[in-house]
């Protein structure tokens, strides 16, 4: 029973991270219909920025609280900046190009960013400082749920609620929904569609960076390649929930996290990554619209 609970907690924590990254995919896909392959790399860059800033500040002797706040802010700010720049350079010139073009450009961008971090920093795994302190009240349950699990789940919950409110109640949220429904019409009604797309990229990237920071301090090490797998898995989560749907991304992330957790716990840990891929392939075959997505018919 305890093992079961442990697996559930582990799965939910993983799922929360996937959900954070999947939100970026889903939002971007909802608005411009593009799979942003570079999104996983934005997550990696967020984690790396946090690592660099946190390590530097720790070496210069700043207190832990300051380190956490500055590193978290820096990760979000720089990841957002990268997301914005990637959209400006690699996607905006290709608006209206054939479908394959932005996709290939996105793959190229993802590859470029990976190797940029590899060359500018290091190819090795680097130890990530433990930014989340241990909580005393969790001590009796530490084998089931750790402090970082709790922080990850809480952060994800807060972020989800904030995001939902932003999209539902603010002007920019309304503009985003309008653009997602029909960008040409939104443009006619005076919405600056380019700005809305930029903001979508910025929000999605910042969320990915928060995910990167949390997962890095949970696992304790990062390298330039972490974005690739995380990106694909988060994409799987987004598709599972129905790409374009925000609650779907959360649901998909949680389901994927639990699947992986139970799969590795009861079957074999060698095939950890295979579960995600297989789940993705199965969903696309049997329910391509995802759990909460609407099936769309392409119109001529």
């Amino acid at each position: 029973m305890e093992y079961f609970l442990e697996l559930i907690c582990g799965g939910l924590t993983r799922g929360a991270i996937y959900a954070l990254i999947a939100l970026g995919y889903t939002m971007v896909y909802g608005i411009i219909g593009l799979i942003n392959f570079a999104h996983g790399e934005i997550y990696m860059i967020g984690a790396f920025t946090a690592f660099i800033i946190a390590t530097a500040l720790t070496i210069y002797g700043f207190p832990l609280a300051a380190v956490v706040i500055v590193a978290g802010l820096a990760a979000a700010v720089w990841a957002a900046a990268y997301g914005y720049t990637v959209e400006r350079i690699a996607y905006r010139p290709l608006r209206g190009a054939p479908r394959l073009s932005p996709l290939i450009s996105a793959i190229g961008m993802s590859f470029f960013l990976q190797n940029y971090v590899l060359l500018a920093q290091t190819a090795d795994f680097v130890p990530f400082p433990a930014l989340i302190p241990d909580f005393d009240f969790l001590e009796p349950y530490s084998h089931i749920i750790g402090a970082s699990d709790l922080v990850i789940l809480a952060t994800t919950a807060v972020v989800m609620v904030t995001l939902t409110c932003v999209i539902r109640y603010t002007t920019i949220g309304k503009a985003m929904r309008a653009t997602a429904q029909d960008s040409a019409m939104a443009l006619l009604l005076g919405i600056n569609v380019n700005r809305v797309i930029s903001i979508t990229f910025i929000i999605g990237s910042a969320l990915a960076a928060i995910g990167g920071l949390l997962v890095a301090s949970h696992i304790g090490q990062i390298n330039f390649y972490i974005g690739f797998l995380a990106g694909i898995k988060a994409f799987a989560a987004a598709v599972l929930g129905g790409i374009g749907s925000i609650p779907g991304a959360v649901l998909g992330g949680m389901l994927l996290g639990l699947t992986e957790s139970f799969g590795t716990g009861y079957i074999s840990s060698d095939y950890e990554d295979v579960f995600a891929f297989s789940l993705l392939v199965l969903i696309l075959i049997f329910k391509p619209a995802g759990l909460l997505g609407k099936a769309t018919v392409e119109k001529v």
């Binding site: 690699a90 290709l94 450009s105 793959i107 190229g108 961008m109 470029f112 990976q114 190797n115």
Partner: peptide
């Protein structure tokens, strides 16, 4: 810089 170039080629060619 080979790998960097492969990524850049994909983006630049598309644009």
């Amino acid at each position: 810089y080979r790998m960097l170039a492969f990524g850049a080629i994909l983006v630049l060619m598309m644009i």
